[in-house]
Amino acid sequence: METELLFLRDAYLREVDAEVIDVDHDERTLALDRTVFYPTGGGQPHDTGVLADLPVVDVRKEGGLVWHRLGGEAPVPGRGATVHGEVDWDRRHALMRTHSALHVLCGVIWNEWGVPVTGGNMEPLSARMDFEFNPLPEGFKERVDELVAAEIAADRPIEVSFLPRDAALEDADLIRTKVNLIPETVREIRVVDIVGCDKQADGGTHVRSTGEIGGVRIVKTENKGKGNKRLRIEVVDG
């Protein structure tokens, strides 16, 4: 049995009632039949919140199961129990805004300079992203600030869809974001499309439109070696 990942289809779900399908009492971890809690992955940190009236302190995906580590002193529920969970929404929504901001950044840099992203990581309302620049173009920061602000002002819809693997491999935008590196066992590809700006195969949580991101500031650029430049951003209220 696998955990159903409810957040893949609706990132705005905050609560869930689920069945415990496996438990490790020593580690205080539960695997559920369905979850709204995002597990660490793809550069996005795990959600926190409350599950079975205990704090959720870590969430990890192992194979087809999502494991929720619980804090507190009370015993964790056993296998077969029905539990209620609620995500820390302020943290989750901050991560959604941040993740969407990074996709906007990827989109404007690709559309303006044709340069791909090579890596990234995020925390709520702050993030870094690496690009294949050598060197950075003249006036880069100011131009990126301008382009990102324009995409946010346009309030572009952010759409989630699911494509058969073969169809995804024929999409030039998805090939650019290395969809071909996704294991062949994954036959359905989740696509996040900022309409008119950026399209990526992605498993993270996002806001519904770019206007919901707020504002984005590039706070620092760093040289991380030949052909690799790092941008650090902050997401602020618009």
Rank of each mutant, 00 (worst) to 15 (best):
E123C: 14
L163N: 04
A167W: 10
A168Y: 02
V148L: 10
S126M: 12
D130F: 06
P157T: 01
A154V: 07
E138V: 11
R143E: 13
A127C: 11
E146W: 12
M122N: 01
E151H: 05
P164R: 09
E159R: 14
E159H: 05
A149W: 00
A127M: 10
L136G: 07
V144N: 01
R165Y: 04
D166F: 02
E132S: 15
F140L: 01
E159F: 03
S161Y: 04
A149G: 07
F131E: 12
R143K: 15
D155G: 13
R165P: 08
F162L: 09
E142L: 05
F140G: 01
R156G: 03
A150H: 08
P157M: 04
E138G: 06
L147Q: 10
P135G: 08
L125D: 12
L169F: 00
I175S: 14
A154K: 11
N121A: 14
I152N: 06
L163Y: 10
E170L: 10
E132Y: 08
E159Q: 09
D130E: 08
F140W: 05
R128L: 13
P137T: 03
F131W: 11
R143V: 02
F131V: 12
V160W: 03
L147Y: 10
F133S: 03
F162T: 02
P164K: 07
A172E: 15
A149H: 05
L147I: 07
L136F: 09
N121H: 13
N134K: 13
A149Q: 10
A168Q: 02
A167Y: 09
A168S: 04
L136I: 05
D171W: 02
E123L: 15
V144F: 09
L163T: 07
N134S: 13
L169A: 01
E123A: 15
N121I: 00
P164Q: 11
F133V: 01
A150Y: 05
L163H: 11
V148F: 07
A168K: 00
P157L: 03
E123Y: 13
A167G: 11
A154R: 14
D171L: 00
E142Q: 08
V144H: 00
V148N: 06
A167H: 15
P164I: 04
A168F: 01
P124N: 00
D145G: 06
A167F: 10
V160T: 13
E138T: 09
G139L: 12
L147P: 13
A153V: 08
D130L: 04
A150Q: 13
A149S: 13
L169T: 02
F140E: 02
E159P: 02
A154E: 11
V160E: 06
F131L: 12
L169K: 00
I158F: 06
K141W: 00
